[in-house]
Amino acid sequence: MLLLIPGPVQTRPEVRSAMAVDIAPWDRDFFPESIAIREKVRDVAGGLPDRHVALPLQGAGHFIVEAAIRTFVPAAAGKLLVVSNGAYADRMERLAREAGRDVAILRIPDTRGVTPGEVAAALAADSAVTHLGIVYSETGSGIVNDVVAVGEVVRAAGRRMIVDGVSAFGALPFDLKAQPEVDAMVFTSNKCIEGLPGMGFAVCPIERVEASAGNAASWSFDLSDVYATGRRAGFGSFRFTPPVQALHAFGVALDIFIAEGGQPARLARYCENCRILYEGCVKLGLVPYLDWKEQGPIIALFHQPKHPGFKLLEFVEALKRRGVLISNFHNTVEPTFRIGCIGHVGPDEIRFAVGAIRGALEDLGVRQKNAA
Rank of each mutant, 00 (worst) to 15 (best):
E93P: 00
Y136E: 11
L132I: 00
V129C: 15
G86T: 13
I134D: 08
G86N: 10
R91D: 15
H62W: 03
F63K: 01
S127L: 12
T139H: 07
V65H: 08
G117I: 00
F72C: 14
F63N: 09
E138G: 03
I108H: 01
A67K: 06
I69D: 00
E66N: 13
Y88Q: 12
G140V: 07
A87M: 14
L106G: 02
Y136H: 14
T71W: 02
A77V: 03
H131D: 12
P109L: 07
A99T: 06
L106D: 04
E118Q: 15
P116M: 13
E118W: 02
P109N: 11
T111L: 04
V103W: 09
A122E: 11
L123A: 14
Y88A: 12
L123C: 08
S84F: 01
H62Q: 11
I134Q: 09
L106C: 13
V82F: 07
Y88E: 15
V73S: 04
A122N: 12
A104R: 11
L132P: 01
I108K: 02
A104F: 08
P109S: 11
T139P: 03
A77C: 05
A120W: 04
Y136D: 08
A120S: 14
G86V: 13
L106Q: 12
T115A: 13
R107Q: 13
V82E: 09
N85I: 15
S137T: 03
G140K: 00
E93C: 02
A75G: 14
N85M: 15
G117D: 00
A128Y: 00
V83K: 00
A96F: 05
V73W: 13
A75L: 14
G117E: 01
G78P: 06
A68D: 01
R91F: 15
A99C: 06
I105V: 15
V129S: 12
A76S: 14
E66T: 10
G113P: 04
G100V: 01
N85R: 15
F63E: 08
V65M: 06
D102G: 05
P116G: 09
V65R: 15
E98F: 11
D110W: 01
P116T: 14
G133T: 08
L80M: 07
I69K: 01
I105G: 07
R97C: 13
G61Y: 01
A128T: 06
R112W: 10
R70V: 09
G113M: 04
S127D: 09
H62D: 10
G86H: 02
A120Y: 09
A67T: 08
D90H: 08
E93Y: 02
P116W: 05
A104C: 09
G78C: 13
A99Y: 02
R101K: 05
A67D: 02
E118F: 10
Y136L: 03
A87I: 03
M92K: 05
F63G: 00
T130A: 00
R112C: 10
I69F: 07
R107W: 08
V65A: 13
P116D: 11
E66S: 14
V103L: 13
R97W: 06
D126C: 08
D102N: 10
G86S: 11
E93L: 12
E118V: 03
L106P: 07
E118P: 04
N85E: 15
L123G: 06
A125E: 14
E98S: 14
V103T: 13
A89T: 08
G133H: 07
I134Y: 05
